[in-house]
Design a protein around this nucleic acid. Structure first.
Ligand SMILES: NC(=O)c1ccc[n+]([C@@H]2O[C@H](COP(=O)([O-])OP(=O)(O)OC[C@H]3O[C@@H](n4cnc5c(N)ncnc54)[C@H](O)[C@@H]3O)[C@@H](O)[C@H]2O)c1
Ligand SMILES: NC(=O)c1ccc[n+]([C@@H]2O[C@H](COP(=O)([O-])OP(=O)(O)OC[C@H]3O[C@@H](n4cnc5c(N)ncnc54)[C@H](O)[C@@H]3O)[C@@H](O)[C@H]2O)c1
Lengths: 215, 215
DNA sequence: ATTTTGTTGTGAAAGCTTTCACAACATCAT
DNA sequence: ATGATGTTGTGAAAGCTTTCACAACAAAAT
């Protein structure tokens, strides 16, 4: 019985982790799994697992645990990975190319449909079977092709302008690799993949081991 | 007067953001900045900024704000980005290659010194001026070259074995791109860059807009 | 001098997340 | 049937993070 409460970022991230674990358990032909087992697999606490799941309903049986396949499917539904998503990629440089080559995303339902760049030498060329389009037509082409998720992999100076064009196309989900704080209107989901920040987190831990979680 | 309290992950991430903002403000020749200004730049609250900084000391002047260059340098010190770090990269495939090409990391003090792979065709070849070494010698070479941070960019099946070799070399900081939960002993800092998880977060928001922050 | 305006640093309050603890079941052995 | 064992779902407690609110200053104006 899902109440209309905000779900925390950490709960959503953990759902992804449960999902990955359940896919593996299902492959390994496990029928059921307890919150304790699932917690151990992901280095979490059983109470955390049960509380996270309880936000979305009661999926388990007391005394037995959770049915693996069923729970996997339920979480897939919740995460929206039971369906296909049309993804576009803007900026086909180092990172952009790596993402296009990565077949795992497609297998998970994230289908890279369109590629964009502003480099005349790249526009029109075929990249892993997908033609690179001119970013000048970004808004229109995103609309025409019903793109639902856009990945930004352009230099930081260009990122906000690209982002604005994406928002104009009514796209509601953006994954950004540029190390910059993009401004998006309410109703648009933005996730940042900031590697510099992760490296700085690590150097912080190296310098301040006493302050840091891992002690 | 730094008390010996754990610093939260979110505070550390925000320090990275303040730092980036301060670098820009310094370039733009600003002398001072208030918690209000800094908060506006990063879409945070002034109280948050002041509280975060207060964990590490008092850097501002009442009535005036913070001296930009001084605060920048203080945060650089706290984050450990006032020094150089020796970085090694394991797995020179799509993602690994993209990281080697990225000059920004070196500029920030993260110097990629060694590359490793297990593919005989790649081992010994020169990649952007760095020779690719055999991962068989990983532990010894990490030690010999005083590597402090290692980036894992191998397929998920190989990641834990690679990780174990890294830990054996007494490396205390690991950045992992493989979509898998690595097990590391206490005292080793591990950060994960999991793009699939970010995409799933976005699809969750698309499916459950009412549950999601951006509502 | 005194007032006004501006801003920090921080204890306390509010809000949010995780953990605890236990009733409510389910299964199995006897 | 009954008891023993195992596990969920959840309200309450504990713990953590963010926001509030204000004293303590600093500078400038009067
Ligand atoms: N490569 C990495 O390892 C790495 C690591 C961390 C962050 N990043 C960030 O990811 C982003 C991409 O990095 P990269 O190394 O792939 O850069 P890159 O220079 O290799 O690629 C950028 C691509 O974007 C294109 N581009 C530029 N402006 C554009 C615009 N307005 N519209 C469309 N395309 C445009 C360029 O032509 C180029 O193909 C950057 O913001 C970078 O800071 C990269
Ligand atoms: N490419 C992407 O866009 C992307 C996106 C998300 C996650 N990832 C993850 O990042 C990792 C790397 O992805 P990729 O696309 O670069 O893969 P890739 O196959 O292009 O590269 C992997 C490299 O690792 C090497 N390797 C394999 N086993 C090794 C070992 N034991 N020791 C040393 N090297 C070894 C391979 O020879 C290869 O060069 C994977 O875990 C992948 O799931 C990649």
């Amino acid at each position: 019985m899902p109440k209309l409460k905000r779900i925390s970022e950490s709960t959503i991230s953990r759902l992804s982790r449960y999902y990955r674990a359940l896919v593996q358990l299902d492959k390994d032909n496990y029928e059921t799994v307890s919150s304790k087992d699932l917690a151990n697999l992901e280095h979490l606490t059983p109470a955390q697992v049960r509380k996270d799941l309880s936000f979305f309903g009661s999926f388990g049986t007391r005394g037995l645990g959770y049915p693996v396949r069923e729970l996997k499917d339920k979480i897939a539904r919740i995460l929206g990975v039971d369906q296909e998503w049309n993804v576009a990629l803007v900026g086909i440089g180092n990172i952009g190319s790596a993402l296009v080559s990565y077949k795992e995303f497609a297998r998970q339902g994230f289908k890279i449909k369109l590629l964009f760049d502003n480099d005349q030498r790249k526009i029109g060329s075929n990249h892993k079977g997908i033609v690179i389009r001119d970013v000048a037509n970004l808004t229109r082409e995103l609309k025409d092709n019903h793109i639902e998720i856009v990945v930004i992999a352009v230099p930081p100076q260009q990122a906000q302008a690209v982002c604005d064009d994406i928002v104009k196309a009514d796209v509601k989900a953006i994954l950004n690799f540029a190390p910059i704080n993009l401004k998006v209107p309410k109703g648009v989901s933005l996730r940042n993949e900031n590697m510099a920040m992760e490296l700085e987190h690590l150097s912080f831990c190296l310098v301040n081991d006493h302050y840091c979680e891992q002690g």
